[in-house]
Write a protein that binds this DNA or RNA. Structure first.
Lengths: 260, 260
DNA sequence: TGGATACTACGGCCGTCACCGTAGCGTCCT
DNA sequence: AGGACGCTACGGTGACGGCCGTAGTATCCA
């Protein structure tokens, strides 16, 4: 942690210092716990975060201030509570990237399967569904040809738009932002893509509204109600989310690129 | 950096400790410099990395050992040299996610434009092209309808396969791996997607082989030769990579999700 | 075989930072 | 009002961990 002498002006370190700054913020156990807890997209109070991180409120307050200054969190003051949340989807994306590594890394890291069971079935990932539920939605749309390539991700075909409309989500919402309405997001527990993007978020929101899914308390896990199962099954031909793992084990580690 | 008491067994921190471990590895300036330098996909010796990171070889050696143990790097011993490289595409992806944050964050972080100029024109991102060159390829394929949605990313349409074949890249290579052959990768300098995946890597490799692109020395930047410009232009209708920024400033920050 | 080079191992130094106790400010409830 | 509660600010303590110098091993070259 010295590294401050002449370091900054070494050869090619143009944006690397900032990279280190961000990673350093995420690299403390307490802060990582907080960020992890916020990844379900909810906003939590400082006290809740302190408890989740396992530190005293004073300590948590300091951490939260640092995360704020680093631009990773946003805050909304409401009465005597202050609700913290991730600053944006990019933060969630970056954390997902790290979690993929954390749950894969050759070394023995792996989430304990007994507690992981319900998390890997369904959970929220920032603002959309992950786990086998999220993957099931992704696969059903993909297999049915309801997705098409678009700037940085996917867009809905006309048949896909019809499906979203049936589910009660306006498929054309979200403005003309350049960001993709739908994009693949690698699932850290299943190692397969689910759907992110603002349409995926809107769908998740709709599912909670309609009682198709429910948050389990004290956990990021989500449960799918019977109504939800039938509603999604009716609207999405080929929808399944109860397969543990569809063949293809985690065998082939991609080979070396060895470019140039 | 205390955080070792009872912390590990707090509420929901299932994979968060690992997340912190990974982020902590990336959070040191010297290690971040090394990882940043390795993001162009090449393998570098310990001494080169020490120099790039601005530390003594002994210090670098320690850092490299830690990165190895964390599973972020792989090494190939060759004579008295040890060549270090990123352990896999997932590592590069995770780093990209952090760099997006590092170059965006409301705070004044931004890469200095004078040195950034050639980097933001074209560079290698692990094993494929980034910068306006990479975006130009992405946009030309997208606009021409040569991409289709596929498991976790894009696949080539038949017209797209023809284009790759013309360029001398076998569009069906890469085995039947589940990972997408092509997928969007958010460009940290341009904030728009370019193409990653093993077909993008093969294309980049081909461009270097044919002399269409050349690495600038002492930099991750890449230059596009005249032959390259005409070869890509001929094969890719609509290919452009010389536009500084196609309208749409970095105005709209995505609004709050506020789910549930 | 001798010497240069590449890298790693060990040990001491010291700065950064996470931790909590105490204290202070603002908000809600009765 | 008075008191409880949520949160932040400050200060002192302790230790994790980055830094380099020295020393040791392996490889290449003449």
């Amino acid at each position: 942690m010295k590294a401050h002498h002449v370091r900054m002006s070494t050869p090619n370190s143009y944006s690397a210092p900032y990279l280190a700054e961000i990673a350093h913020l995420m690299g403390d156990p307490a802060r990582a716990n907080m960020l992890h807890a916020l990844m379900d997209g909810r906003a939590l109070t400082a006290k809740e975060l302190a408890w989740l991180a396992g530190v005293a409120p004073q300590t948590a307050s300091g951490h939260l201030a640092k995360l704020m200054q680093g631009g990773l969190l946003a805050v909304a003051a409401q009465g005597r509570h202050r609700y913290y949340r991730l600053a944006g989807p990019e933060v969630a994306t970056a954390l997902e990237g790290l979690m993929v590594l954390a749950n894969m890394e050759g070394s023995g890291r792996r989430l304990p399967s007994r507690v992981g069971a319900e998390l890997s079935f369904a959970r929220t990932c920032y603002d959309h569904f992950a786990g086998r539920l999220g993957i099931g939605i992704h696969d059903a749309l993909m297999a049915g040809g309801h997705l098409t390539a678009s700037e940085g991700g996917y867009a809905l075909t006309s048949s896909g738009k019809a499906i979203f409309a049936v589910l009660g989500v306006d498929p054309d919402q979200g403005g003309r932002s350049r960001r993709a309405a739908l994009r693949p997001c690698l699932d850290w527990s299943e190692r397969r893509p689910h759907l992110a993007g603002h349409l995926a978020a809107a769908l998740a929101c709709r599912c909670f509204e309609m009682g198709w899914t429910r948050r389990r308390k004290d956990s990021r896990a989500v449960s799918l109600t019977e109504e939800g199962r039938s509603a999604l099954g009716a609207a999405l031909p080929g929808f399944r989310c109860d397969v543990p793992e569809p063949a293809v084990s985690s065998s082939a580690r991609e080979p070396v690129p060895a470019l140039a």
